[in-house]
Design a protein around this nucleic acid. Structure first.
Length: 554
RNA sequence: GCGCCUGUAGCUCAGUUGGAUAGAGCAACGGACUUCUAAUCCGUAGGUCGCAGGUUCGAAUCCUGCCAGGCGUGCCA
């Protein structure tokens, strides 16, 4: 519908230029917006004010000229006004909006699906937490964000893959293996000193006990060097199982688990280094091999092979991202914790060195979660073992509330999460407000069923009965839903869905309190049933996109 | 030091990418259950959009400089 209106404006401007009523030149970008106030119409554009500078005329005059040139062939416009400093406000015919109610009813669950991403493959890589410890609450935020974003992209037509990259080799894995080994020795009563940089968490002891229980003392006599790998691998597999369980509980599904180990197995890392060397992007210095990331704007070159011969995490990452493109994705989205932001320039450099366009690769940073318990901040470090696990929070606060809470804020805004507060507010959490609207509508239909009122189908309803301001507002919200979802996908800002939901639920609650859906007036009842049915559908699919349930009763 | 992010009501945060009178929730105060669910609604109150300049018809939003907080600045991941 937006396209229809913008088309009309563009045609008018072109017409004016042809007739010499408007100055010729480049067409300025057209922005159409939904005015906040109803008195400003259904759509407004500022185009006349933008054009005023080179038209060398007052904006209002330019606006008047454009308005006179408008031809509404499709007959969707009720009237057009020039207002304020030079806005052109469009008032559409009422039928125009109501028509979408029928569309929403007809399409049911599929309403809101779009074609924005049709034919494009997107890989969303998120979370990718190292399997060196259980997921904590910060991971929860990234997981909730990544999942919701992937859902939305899928909804608007992209072919989406959700991938988790597992760093199952390297320094951290060695350290994990060593930590387990030392705890294992302690389990057998050996006096060993546990290093400060080891993984301190209780779970390491738990894994050590498991190893002891299953395999007895077979590792005691072996030298550390020979078994650290084995133990590290065993431990990471155990932890990975925990992570998968947690994610399942958090209603998050990945369709792909990609192991760093496999990159090496497939020889991809040496291969990519060879390729970069061939393009003269790699040089040797002080015994190490460096990638010339400064050529692409990074502040310094980066090591890919250390002096000791080991490749760096960055080297794997280059190979990994190359592989993403090789698997046929047009667009790569990485979601990282904000503490990795310094890593972006070198990754973008690598993407360009490989010959891909920078805009096909996008990193979204999710700010870390500051955890509080009462008035006191809880430090969160996997290594020291001081953290609150996602599992713990899910149990205390509930998955629905937890996921909604995470989606309430912009990704790049830091989040204070107070456990005491979250628990205390569990009953008044905004998620219940939205869910309650859904449950209320469900109960309307239960009542309707008892009174043997048939749920109307889309062709037997007179939607023009929906004339109340609240009704018109609600109809419009349902109508713009598909377009709104596209906006979320373009801006990559899924959190805005919660604002939309709260507005929608809010107006519905007010409407519900003031007016009755089921009444003596049969035609009105039908029209209102259709309205609330579509609202219910929008609530349900939106909550679904956020991974939150839409209960039939509460 | 340098780089990135943030700064909006007492608190936690939105603000449709530069629009018209800056919005919610919580907390406070006053009202509404004989009705399709009161986990709700209606009303009152609450603001120097960190500060100072700049850009233009127009700035919370863009540019510059300060101030404050967070993160980063490894041949760690």
């Amino acid at each position: 519908m937006k396209k229809g209106v913008s088309g009309i404006i563009m045609q008018a401007i072109k017409r004016g230029r042809k007739r010499g009523e408007l100055v010729d030149g480049l067409l300025p970008p057209l922005t159409l917006e939904y005015p906040k106030e109803e008195i400003y119409g259904d759509y407004a554009t500022n185009i006349a004010m933008v054009m005023a500078s080179y038209e060398k005329r007052p904006p209002r005059e330019v606006a008047e000229t454009i308005v006179k040139l408008i031809e509404d062939e499709a007959g969707i416009i009720e009237r057009v006004e020039v207002a304020g400093p030079g806005f052109i406000n469009f008032f559409l015919k009422e039928d125009y909006w109501r028509h979408f109610l029928l569309e929403a009813a007809r399409e049911g669950e599929r309403y809101g699906e779009g074609e924005l991403g049709k034919g494009k493959k997107v890989l969303v890589e998120f979370l990718s937490a190292n399997p060196t410890g259980p997921l904590h609450i910060g991971h929860g935020r990234i997981a909730a964000f990544g999942d919701a974003l992937a859902n939305i992209l899928e909804k608007v037509g992209y072919e989406v893959e959700r991938e988790y990259y597992i760093n199952d080799i390297g320094t951290q894995m060695q350290l994990l293996g060593r930590s387990v080994y030392l705890r294992y020795l302690q389990e057998w009563g050996k006096e060993v000193e546990f290093p400060a940089d080891g993984y301190q968490g209780e779970y390491v002891k738990e894994i050590a006990r498991q190893v002891k229980g299953k395999e007895g003392n077979k590792y005691i006599t072996l030298p550390e060097r020979e078994i650290v790998d084995t133990l590290g691998q065993k431990a990471s597999e155990t932890i990975l199982r925990w992570i998968k369980d947690d994610l399942k509980g958090f209603r998050i599904r990945f369709n792909s688990w990609y192991r760093e180990r496999d990159l090496y197995r497939g020889g991809l890392v040496p291969q990519i280094l060879e390729e970069l060397r061939g393009r003269d992007y790699i040089y040797e210095e002080e015994g190490a091999f460096w990638f010339k990331s400064t050529l692409f704007g990074d502040e310094k070159d980066r090591v890919v092979v250390r002096a000791n011969g080991a490749t760096t995490y960055f080297a794997s990452d280059i190979a990994y991202h190359k592989d993403k493109y090789d698997r046929g994705y047009n667009f790569l989205i990485d979601i990282w914790g904000a503490d990795h932001h310094g890593y972006i320039p070198r990754m973008e450099a690598a993407i360009q060195a490989l010959g891909y366009d920078k805009i096909s690769f996008k990193v979204i940073l999710v700010q870390l979660v500051n955890l509080w318990r009462g008035g006191e901040q809880v430090s969160m470090s996997t290594r020291t073992g001081e953290f609150t696990t996602l599992q713990e929070v899910m149990g205390e606060v509930g998955v629905d509330a937890c996921r909604y809470f995470f989606m309430l804020r912009r990704a790049d805004s830091p989040l204070d999460f107070d456990l005491e507060l979250a628990k205390r507010e569990a009953a008044e959490n905004p998620v219940y407000y939205v869910q309650y609207a859904h449950a209320r509508i469900a109960s309307i239909f239960k009542k309707a069923a008892k009174q043997v009122i048939k749920v109307p189908t889309f062709d037997e309803v007179d939607t023009s009965l929906l004339r109340l301001p609240e009704e018109r507002w609600l109809v419009k919200q349902v109508a713009i839903f598909p377009e709104f979802l596209e906006g979320l996908a373009v801006s990559l800002e899924p959190h805005r869905l919660t604002s939309y939901l709260q507005d929608l639920a809010g107006v519905f609650h007010g409407y519900y309190n003031k007016h009755r859906v089921i009444s003596e007036d049969k035609e009105m009842t039908k029209a209102r049933l259709l309205l609330v049915k579509t609202i219910k559908g929008v609530l349900q699919s939106s909550l679904g996109l956020l991974g939150i349930t839409a209960p039939e009763e509460m």
